[in-house]
Structures are given as structure tokens and as C-alpha cells.
Amino acid sequence: MVCDSWKAKLDTYLDGELPEQELRAFDAHVRGCAPCAADALARVQIKRAIQVAGKRFTPSAEFRKKVRQSVAPTPQRRLRPGWIFTSALALVFVAAALTLTYWATESGRDQLIRNQVYSEIADLHVDSLASSSPVDVVSADRHTVKPWFQGKIPFAFDLPELQNTGFTLLGGRMAYLDQAPGAHLIYDVRKHHISVFVFQERLLPAGLGENSFLPMSLAFRMETWSQNGLRYFVIGDTGVSEIESLAKLFKGN
């Protein structure tokens, strides 16, 4: 038969082991010869069936573990007492170094976060000073300003009574810190503007401090504290006493 010479090499062809030149000739023949094409297809499917049937046995997890342990490096079994002591000492030093590094890293990380937040607060304050309309609700009446925030921020807060304090409420606006919405109130004292920001504590980065007064760069001063789940920031270019006084009013003492 004319196809016998082709069929003798059909399996070799399907194994992908024919030389390049012979492979091209074989391809051309199979494309034009229906019986050889059908035979090739059937043999491919038998190959696949053998492949599936041949993947029959799976080792147990226990056996795999046993073999893995037998080939894994186990230098610790050869340790002498001297090495054990040296290793233990080294471990103590490493642990101490890691602890110190951790503290240093934690401390540094917290400081970095604090600085970022304070810097953003200062930016918000400066932005309002530079704006032609620093407040969205213009009123010296706290009973007007406070309701303006209803429905705009997901929390409520109290505004202090300012009578005989030297502070004047100019109004308020929305502010966002670390994508958390909050209230931005602006007060006047001796022609200086002081901003008070109020945000939900849980939405801000941790480690901002419970009650801290912070001398800021660019002549700003700021005090921040946490009270009843809210985080307050009071910032301005006034003296320390004005910042502290306004903060005390908000704290209610």
C-alpha cells in the first residue's frame, strides 16, 4: 500500500521526533490523505488515553513527608555542646537586636505618621487662610454653625460658649483628613485666625497622642487631643496661651 511507509513512522511523527524536513513532508501527506489523517487522530487519542490511565498512583502525604525529611539538611543534629552554647548566645543577641530594631522602627513609624497628619492639618489651616471664602457657613452663632454640619459629617460635637473669652467664631466648613470627613471651625482672636478641626478618632491613623501640645514649624502652634471618640486639632499662629485657652474651652474645662 502506498501509505505503508508513512504509517510505519506515524507514531514517531506524533511523538514529535521526526527530523524537521521529514516532518514537513509528513504534515503535507497527512493533510492530503484522509486514511492517514484518521489514523493519526485515533492514535493521538490513544496516546491521551494512555497518558490519563498512566497517571494512576499518588503517594500519601505521610510518605512524602518522610522522604522530604530524609533528604532535608539536618546540621543541627551534629551540634556539639560548645556550638549549642554559642548558638544560644547568638540567638540572645539577635533577639535583643531585633527587639531594639522593632522599637526603633515602631517609634520612627509612629513619628512619621504623626508628622504627616500634623503637616496635613497645617496645610488645611493655611489653605483656609489663603482662601477668599474661608468658611462655608458664615456665622458667629454656634447654634447656627453646629446645625450646618448635620447630615454632612457622621458625628456630632459641641461648640463652646465664647462670651468674654476674646474668641469669635467666624464660621465653619467641611474638611477631609486621610479621607475622613470632619468639621473645620475658624475662630478669631486679636485678628489672628485659629482653626479647630474635629474628626472621628477611629478613622485616623493610630498614635496621634492623647493630649499633646506641639510646636510646629512655620510659626504655627498646635494642640491635639482625643475626647469621646473625637480627635481635635487646634492650630494657629498665635501664642501658646491662645491655643491652650481655646483647647480648654473645647475640652469643657
Partner: peptide
């Protein structure tokens, strides 16, 4: 005896040999 275990060589062997484990087992079972 000190710490002269063949750790690096053993590491290399494990990395090369363990991926063949399933197929070697299948072949051995056949």
C-alpha cells in the same frame, strides 16, 4: 564531629528532586 553537614548540597538536591516526587512514585508503582 563539627558542623560540616552537606547543607548547601542537600538544599540543592531537595529543590531539584522533590518536584519529581509524585511522578517518580507513580512510575515506581507501575
Amino acid at each position: 564531629m563539627g558542623m560540616s553537614g552537606p547543607a548547601p548540597q542537600s538544599d540543592a538536591f531537595e529543590a531539584l528532586a522533590m518536584p519529581l516526587f509524585d511522578q517518580l512514585y507513580n512510575f515506581a508503582h507501575w
